[in-house]
Design a protein around this nucleic acid. Structure first.
Length: 259
DNA sequence: ACTAATGTTGTAGG
DNA sequence: GCCTACAACATTAG
């Protein structure tokens, strides 16, 4: 599913393709995806395409469009619309499609960039070690639900949380505040490493994710725990487990990640 | 032909 | 504010 590395990959592709071009038309097909009119960005030039957490921000001359991909959302350049096409953006010669099978994705418009991201915590790739530790220290919730909470930290989803916690040797049900300082430092370090490597691989394609050209990423080839229950741990050989934490399938090594 | 599982996010409740 | 549970949704695996 699109998490920070997948969104970053899409944003880099879109920036190269769209920056400097003018929005020439919009056709909204999915009333669930778009709640308020997008008409006012027609005619505006696209100045920047960026990301905050998993939110894609398309900065135009007067307004900013925020695209949330949800679980199955895709932004596709010059593709054939499928039956799940929710929005067609005409941007100069380029057609940009927002496709979304499950319709959890959203496209919003605002004249204020702040208002589109103010509900989110710090970005997972920008947060400093000190800031992360400071925020973890007071929290009594389990570490996994906390890392999934976008208001606490923006950008991680189920796949990368499982991979990061395994690399940092932290049990997903550990109480955040009870992690030692050095464990929190390792968490910050592993998070940065895994996100950076996943971006180099252009993201993880498990079931739905493809980039703006319709191509799969390759980081799924390097997953150590996600969807690998029953396989041996790369570190210690112990059979990996699958449990449910925060109503999500959770994959971990019972020996490397002790409570 | 059912049912369960999938996983993001807003929201409702304690 | 903090934390937990669930609904929104479509498809697929069993």
């Amino acid at each position: 599913m699109p998490e920070l590395p997948e969104v970053e990959t899409i944003v880099r592709d879109l920036a190269r393709c769209l920056e400097g071009k003018r929005v020439t038309g919009i056709e909204v097909r999915g009333t669930r995806t778009v709640r308020t009119s997008l008409d006012q960005i027609v005619g505006q030039r696209i100045l920047s395409v960026s990301r905050y957490g998993k939110v894609i921000l398309v900065g135009c001359e007067c307004d900013v469009a925020a695209v949330q991909l949800g679980m199955t959302g895709r932004l596709l350049i010059d593709a054939e619309p499928s039956r799940y096409c929710q929005v067609v953006f005409e941007i100069g010669e380029t057609m940009l499609l927002f496709e979304d099978v499950r319709q959890f994705g959203r496209v919003r418009l605002s004249n204020c960039r702040e208002s589109l991201t103010e509900h989110l915590g710090p970005d997972a790739l920008s947060i400093t070690e000190a800031d992360l530790i400071g925020r973890l220290r007071s929290r009594k919730s389990g570490i996994k639900p906390l890392l999934l909470n976008q208001a606490f930290l923006a950008g991680l989803g189920n796949i990368y949380v499982d991979e990061i916690l395994h690399a940092a040797r932290i049990h997903p049900s550990s109480v955040a505040a009870e992690l030692g300082r050095s464990r929190m430092q390792i968490l910050h370090e592993r998070m940065r490493e895994i996100l950076a490597e996943a971006i180099r691989c252009r993201g993880s394609s498990i079931s739905d994710y493809v980039d703006a050209s319709g191509q799969m990423g390759s980081y799924q080839l390097y997953h150590r725990v996600y969807a690998k229950a029953g396989f041996p741990c790369h570190v210690c050989g112990t059979s990996l487990s699958r449990i449910v934490v925060a109503q999500r399938g959770t994959h971990y090594c019972p020996k490397c990640q002790r409570l």
